[in-house]
């Protein structure tokens, strides 16, 4: 949670800077953030390619386990698309925000730099509230929808920030499911968002 707060502070600090018109001219150049995004995507790729521990977990997959992140990812994307369509907005834009799976920093950055900065902010707020909701409602979700539901709600965050809550309320036997699902969904975020938009 501390990490999330620090990350958010940078966004808020940026808002405050430009609301008070204190932004240095250089930073307003659009290209700078495009190059920074390319750099970030390369680094994310390197960290995925190097991560043997995650690859070893992925090798444990059987059909049931594999279907967990697949169904969660599909449900998130289509669910967000339908919800957005119901309030007379673009189905595709809804799907792109849904494909953030709670990974708010990366999803908002990709959307704002490659598509539209307002949708990027919507992705930031929506995916942060997804993480918060999952942390707070895990016990309720387990009671109403069963032990898989906190993992679904947590999306990509089930491998780190929401893992402790999930293991507490769904049980230790779901820790590996949560890790696996979170890892797969985390990998899918930078792949799916550019493909959807």
């Amino acid at each position: 949670m501390k990490g999330a707060l620090i990350t958010l502070l940078f966004f808020v600090f940026g808002c405050v800077l430009s609301l008070n018109e204190l932004t240095p001219e250089v930073l307003l150049e659009h290209d700078l953030s495009t190059y920074a995004l390319y750099g970030l995507m390369t680094l994310v790729g390197v960290s995925l390619g190097m991560d043997e521990a995650s690859i070893n977990i992925l090798k444990k997959a059987n059909l049931g386990l594999l279907l967990v992140p697949v169904s969660i990812g599909f449900g998130s994307i289509v669910g967000s698309g339908i919800a957005y369509w119901l309030i007379s907005e673009s189905f595709t834009e809804g799907m792109a925000v849904g494909a953030g799976f709670g990974y708010y920093s990366l999803s908002s950055i990709i959307i704002s730099n490659t598509y539209d900065s307002i949708l990027g902010v919507i992705a930031l707020l929506s995916n942060i509230s997804r993480e918060l909701l999952s942390l707070l409602l895990a016990p309720v979700l387990v009671k109403v929808f069963g032990k898989m539901s906190p993992i679904a709600s947590a999306g990509a965050t089930s491998m780190d920030t929401t893992l402790p809550v999930i293991t507490r309320f769904s049980g230790k036997e779901y820790a590996i499911v949560a890790l696996f699902s979170g890892i797969v969904l985390t990998i899918l975020v930078p792949l799916l968002i550019p493909l959807i938009l």
Partner: peptide, 14 residues
């Protein structure tokens, strides 16, 4: 990098 890009996003949004 995420911090820097979110700072940029904040600046663009503000």
């Amino acid at each position: 990098m995420i911090w820097v890009l979110l700072l940029f996003l904040g600046i663009a949004i503000g």
